[in-house]
Design a protein around this nucleic acid. Structure first.
Lengths: 340, 340
DNA sequence: TTGAAAGCGCTAACAA
DNA sequence: TTGTTAGCGCTTTCAA
């Protein structure tokens, strides 16, 4: 059933069908009813594809995210889709699994599908392929909004958090709790938040006159397995840290896994502070102190920003609407050493 | 840049461009090179929209899921997208938040976007609007695959788990551990898995000659808040249960939240068995026994099934390819009462 | 081996 | 207030 068919059945022209369905132009009420009746009777649903081709616009926005299984990102998507729905956009979901190659492929898909815009958490800060692709997209009229991770050498719109200050404050809390030997499990070197969180850590240490032995900076990758490994290495040092700062939720989990398996007690043997909260642990009041922020809101803001881009598209878009959402240091006790 | 433009620049016709880009028909190697060069030079990316309209087919599949923030579903999506990628399909993600209205809206989107197929976890077993819509989609050549939740009055393809036997076995484990007063926090009445898991519970109780006081069946909705509330009600009974069976992961978390806040100890005060595992708790070896299955694999199977539908579409599709994936009862001790 | 042209289902300018 | 028609950017048949 297409527009011509339905027009025939309703005894009008396809233009009239179009007018009725899009509330555009003048249509006599009587004709309108006739059309609506036919549409209903034959269950006619117009082809969004044909419409897109005709008006050169679409209702789909791309969402490129590293790891949907990470609760941080599932909340981000949740926020994005909440706002997207209110504008009747639908979401084309693309998960990169932290693979650059996939990221590049997906950017091509955004272009070939002529998506209306794209929200992306790019894997690497420095990858120029992604950056150039994003620039091209913007140039060809497809707005780009970054979420959480920034890109070097270009000023895209985006929703970020002050990672450096966040982890600075987090590490400071460890220091105030009396720790001097504090280690970090970092994120991947290429990720902006990873680097910034590490910077915040280093700054806090420096500002407090604490030294950071090279081995205290354990290179993680924001994933459980690596963090597990790092924790083992850190605690195996001749002079192990008394506290560990983990750079994201999965690093925290990996660290906890190690501690648990080796019967190392938080508070007694080692203290902990993580970036990003872990919902399930909160349910059982398993008290890990964290630097937290509202991931859902971050997603919502990203979609709102994208919408603004759509609205501004006529005017001379001023680039670089960058939002920073607040973070909060939540102290639950894991930063203390129990001095029993 | 469209196909005509690029054809002009390459000095050939648009038909030739199409042939080269789709590896269809004969093209002299020399011309091919010329075309590829131009395509590369001008960064030409053909419009998937125009292509879709022309060939009356698309590369997008719809995924309608209740709650992306539930780790079960984020794993399902992860599995779906893993397989989808291997076929170069992209995923249009639609999250219903367990709202029927949204589910219906999204089914309309599937139709209007002329998606190639749809994978859905329908909210309700009995909602006829959704059922009829799904039937219509199939009729109009858009295959449907169900994930986890079935629909009454139609035999759609799908990937399920034997919920009844699963919870039967789970509850049996509680019984073997010596419990006689066992309560359940159910799922919503309209959900098939919810009902089946409840059936399994009832069956296990009956087969063991145990009575089920009406108040022991606490009506949950697969969400944390309600399960929290139910737990309170159950434990407030004059004759409270000694064990609780929770019908999904969020119910388990809600229950745990209540227990934790009220300093009720698992094992000492009450025993527990849940449906679906919770990753974060496993990291810290917080031992809750569960009936578990591979959510990721369930997603993969769903997408594989959908692909089969695509392949069969020419032949007389035999309906009702229904896959049942295995479950496993994982005993971690929370089913026991510590008789210290 | 290539090109011309019709057609996919819709929108919108123009005419009536 | 309505209809005719020329696109939108591709694919594919048919002819050359």
């Amino acid at each position: 059933m297409n527009i011509k068919e339905i027009a025939r059945r309703a005894g009008v022209s396809s233009a009239t069908i179009s007018r009725v369905l899009n509330n555009s132009g003048y249509v006599k009420e009587e004709t309108r009813q006739k059309v609506l009746k036919a549409v209903d009777e034959y269950n006619y649903v117009p082809s969004a594809i044909a419409r897109s081709l005709s008006i050169q616009d679409s209702l789909s926005v791309g969402t490129i995210i590293p790891d949907i299984e990470n609760e941080f990102f599932s909340k981000v998507i949740s926020g994005i889709s909440e706002v997207a729905e209110s504008y009747h956009y639908n979401i084309v979901f693309l998960g990169t699994n932290e693979t650059l190659e996939k990221e590049h492929d997906f950017l091509k898909i955004v272009e070939s599908q002529r998506l209306k815009g794209v929200i992306i958490t790019p894997i690497s800060e420095t990858d120029t392929v992604t950056r150039d692709y994003l620039l091209r997209l913007e140039e060809s009229g497809i707005p780009v909004v970054l979420v959480d991770r920034d890109v070097k050498g270009a000023q895209f719109d985006g929703v970020f958090v002050d990672n450096q200050r966040g982890s600075y404050d987090g590490v400071m809390a460890l220091i105030k709790a009396g720790h001097e030997r504090i280690a970090i499990i970092t994120g991947p070197e290429t990720s902006k938040p990873g680097k910034d969180r590490c910077q915040g850590y280093l700054q806090a240490m420096e500002d407090s006159g604490l030294s950071v032995p090279e081995e205290y900076v354990a290179c993680g990758d924001f994933k459980i397995a690596k963090a597990y490994e790092c924790t083992g290495r850190l605690l195996g040092l001749k002079e192990p840290p008394t506290a560990i700062f983990t750079s994201n939720n999965l690093s925290t989990l990996g660290c906890l896994k190690y501690l648990t398996e080796h019967k190392i007690k938080i508070g007694r043997d080692v203290s902990l502070m993580g970036f990003d909260d872990i919902d399930a642990l909160r349910m059982i009041d398993y008290r890990i102190s964290v630097v937290d922020r509202d991931a859902r809101e971050q997603g919502r803001e990203a979609m709102r920003l994208l919408q603004e881009c759509f609205e501004d598209s006529g005017k001379s878009r001023q680039r670089g609407k960058r939002i920073t959402i607040p973070y909060k240091v939540i102290l639950r006790g894991s930063e203390h050493r129990k001095t029993t």
